[in-house]
Design a protein around this nucleic acid. Structure first.
Lengths: 340, 340
DNA sequence: GAATTATATGGAACCGGTTCCAAGCAATGA
DNA sequence: TCATTGCTTGGAACCGGTTCCATATAATTC
């Protein structure tokens, strides 16, 4: 393997000083056209490429990479956001460094190490909420951070209106005539501090109250994310003395599990039981799942835009935090309750 | 923002030389316990963290990151592989830099820039085939590369047996009694040089030949990847004077499109038409899709292991290229043809 | 034509680590 | 007691860029 050339090799070859080569590399105006050509020729001949590492060290410079910290990035909801993020990044000169989080320990260690490692110029944190101490550390190390699907008073954030999502889903079911409406969610109390299940529960309860329906704790079931767990929870619900006539699931994946369980019991969706999901993942359309559509792609796009606003050194501005709306997508898994 | 401390600050504070601090940082044995404690205390007090950039520059060192170049990384097939890759990486000290490719131009530019930028220590390229020139460049810059789902004579690769997959899918349909078997695939001739559709076609044709069934060009339809396109292609197939009784789709996503189209025509799957997919993506089990399971997760795992083998400086060894087997997963979308 | 200003260029110093060499010091051996 | 060995240690040189200062040359002004 041939040693790679340095700027000094280029300088020697072109018969100029290293400063001049550097100036050519950075399009500095004060280089005569003649010299510039000589230098460019030398660069070409040696197939020279400047080392970004050296560049960064000396110029205290940008890494031209942004980091994404996300839990379980293979879940459809995250893939959707990632897609939006990537779409914007692809237009820019930034690379993407992905930090996956599977355990709270990983989260803690990433929150500590990423800011001082300076491997990235900015950070988008998805669904994980940094502590006050974390936020202080980000600040101290001058690491710009945007939150996505979570929030913190001192950090810009892009969220999606979970409370309203819970409301809309519930309202839809109530309007169809349902009164016995169950809610299946992720564990409210979880090691990562995910809030979306709790917020949707809030919307669900608010809407029930608004409609004069009493909230029944036994109609709310929590369990780890995933189709199989939701399948079980649904079986539990259906085994109640007075089972629900409709189920609101906190994700499409869970809704699919619910539908599976219902069908396995020989019941039909929506004739016997209605099911509404959340997310509007790719297959939701295929299986005809009624759901709440989250603008996941768009939220990804917005988060990068916000980060770029922070990164813009000429004109750095604090991007506003805001909340994107959700949308009810009516398909074939919800309908009026069976005539009792 | 407080200036971050350097190793010299630590040295001064601990009353030692910079070399000693560096030795402590790197667990060099020749540091007395007493000095080590002094240095550690100083590091603690200043909340000092060494700069990985400086470290890399001086030590000519590792970046402790590996790069993944993948096209359309949000497709389920890629997510599955990524999951396997990430699982291994999470156990290691390596970070993951993701390069998404959406256009052939991006591919070309990435293949050029990644090796010399030295932002990563090694590279896993998924589904994209580097040219001979690219391979030479990788070599010249000493960038270790492992190919996943593609191959090149001079590079280690992990592939999945596409030809056999095509065979197995076709054999399954033939054994059920089908003779008129169509194949829906991605475009064989595509700007990225994806080969899997072509290889599966090969297997399909071989098996047809083996079973004494003539290959009919009009039974092979190509179109961009995606449910909707597959939907169309299926309509075309069904509009033939003698439509197929079974469809082999080159991906589950496309199989779903096919099923959708068939159902929309008022026909049933599998009673009227059988459909077999490819990949065994998450929802395949949910919708009961018969398919060819690709060990995507495992192939991801293997690719990282292979790369680590190349990266192991004590004992660098050229990992073997090999092919993983596929497996037929029989579910409910295939059955005997309707009695003609 | 001398003084002033603008333009182009070379190269030392620096960014924050690592490494290596030289040197100090204690322990060992003759 | 003195030479030898081994263990610690300090700090200069270096990695490959950028930046800034000093200088040389050309252009402008009076």
């Amino acid at each position: 393997m041939s040693r790679t050339y340095t700027i000094r090799d280029v300088a020697k070859r072109a018969g100029v000083g290293v400063g001049t080569v550097s100036r050519v590399l950075n399009d500095h105006p004060s280089v005569s056209e003649e010299t510039r050509q000589k230098v460019l020729a030398a660069i070409e001949e040696l197939d020279f490429h400047p080392s970004p590492v050296a560049r960064q060290l000396s110029a205290g410079g940008k890494t031209l990479a942004i980091g994404i910290i996300a839990p379980f990035f293979t879940r459809p909801a995250f893939v959707g956001r990632l897609e939006g993020i990537e779409a914007v990044l692809a237009q820019s000169e930034y690379d993407l460094v992905l930090y996956n989080v599977e355990t709270p320990e990983q989260q803690a260690s990433l929150f500590r190490k990423v800011p001082y490692e300076r491997r990235v110029d900015g950070l988008i944190i998805i669904s994980l909420t940094p502590s006050n101490e974390d936020v202080k550390r980000f600040e101290r190390y001058g690491m710009p951070v945007v939150l996505l699907d979570t929030s913190h008073p001192d950090l810009p954030s892009i969220t999606i209106d979970d409370v309203d999502g819970g409301k809309q889903a519930t309202r839809h079911l109530v309007e169809l005539g349902h009164r016995r409406i169950a809610y299946i969610s992720d564990p409210l109390d979880n090691p990562f501090g995910f809030r979306s299940s709790a917020l949707r529960l809030e919307g669900y309860r608010e809407m029930l109250a608004e409609c004069g329906i009493e909230f029944r704790p036994d109609y709310h079931r929590q369990g780890e994310h995933g189709r199989h767990v939701a399948h079980h929870l649904t079986q539990e619900l259906m085994a109640l003395p007075d089972p629900p006539t409709a189920i609101f699931a906190a994700s499409d994946t869970q809704a699919l599990g619910a539908i599976e369980a219902i069908r396995q019991m020989g019941l039909r969706v929506p004739e016997d039981i209605s099911v509404i999901g959340y997310d509007d993942i790719e297959v939701a359309a295929y299986v005809g799942l009624t759901t709440i559509r989250q603008p996941m792609y768009q939220s990804g796009v917005e988060s990068v835009k916000a980060l770029f606003q922070l990164l813009d050194e000429e004109n750095p501005s604090l991007p506003a935090s805001y909340t994107l709306p959700v949308q009810l997508i009516e398909r074939e898994t919800t309908g009026p309750p069976a005539a009792a």
